[in-house]
Amino acid sequence: MKKRIFNIHMLLFIFVFLFCLIGFVLRPDYHSIHLSERLLSPCLKHPFGTDYLGRDLLSRVCLGGLLSFLISSVSVLFSLFIGFVFSFFASIKGGVIDRFLVAIIDVFQSFPGMLLAIVFAAFFKGGIGGVLLALIVSNWVGFARLSRGLIISKLNEDYFVYSIACGESVFKAVLKHIVPNIKKPLGIQIVLSFAGAIVTEASLSFLGIGIKPPLPSWGNIIADGKDFILVAPYISVIPGLFLMVSVLCVKNFLKID
């Protein structure tokens, strides 16, 4: 029972990802404008319909998904790296450096994550780089705080003290003995931040400070569709459905319920 739920979410997410990948490979034309085919409802030629410029929504949704997954995963990797390196030095050196890190974590946690992302994206004028930066700025704190706590809790363990006593360098000892022990909680944090990053990216693009048109993103497709909600509700509904399903699946990757 436990294993099955785990697999379903994983499989569904892989399905969404493959759908986006194959969809985009088969229909790479996301930006050519056909004004004669504006706001078409889903039909055989355009399975997801067309938007207000006659662009094919299927390929836009697919590319949007790919971009979203790409940006989210890159941002999570960077945040993990920054947070881990930061907390690594802080917890090993201790003293002033550690207190400095705690203070920084405190400050960054006093902003609601989304606000931080929005403000950074706004000041850096959006675009893929801006979104990446905003996501990293709002995500790295979680990693820093978690890995600092975990590393510190393991520093007094016998195996670590022993390996230091045997003459191993602290750096190596942490990588070899502590990292394998804290993989699991870090993994959970990675998955949760990935889900959060997908939503944040879509929100930023929805507000117009994320991925810039003509590049599609689920967020900016939904925002475009908002103006045509009376005549073409499917424009916003379809990417939203994709967004919801992927977030739901990612969130439940590790959940055993």
């Binding site: 879509a202 509904v237 939203g240 739901l248």
Partner: peptide, 22 residues
């Protein structure tokens, strides 16, 4: 409720508009 937790708010808002207003 598991689904509700993962609803992105901007999409939920549009769905509500579709249902209650349109």
């Amino acid at each position: 409720s598991t689904i509700g937790m993962s609803l992105p708010s901007f999409w939920l808002g549009i769905l509500l508009i579709l249902f209650f207003s349109v």
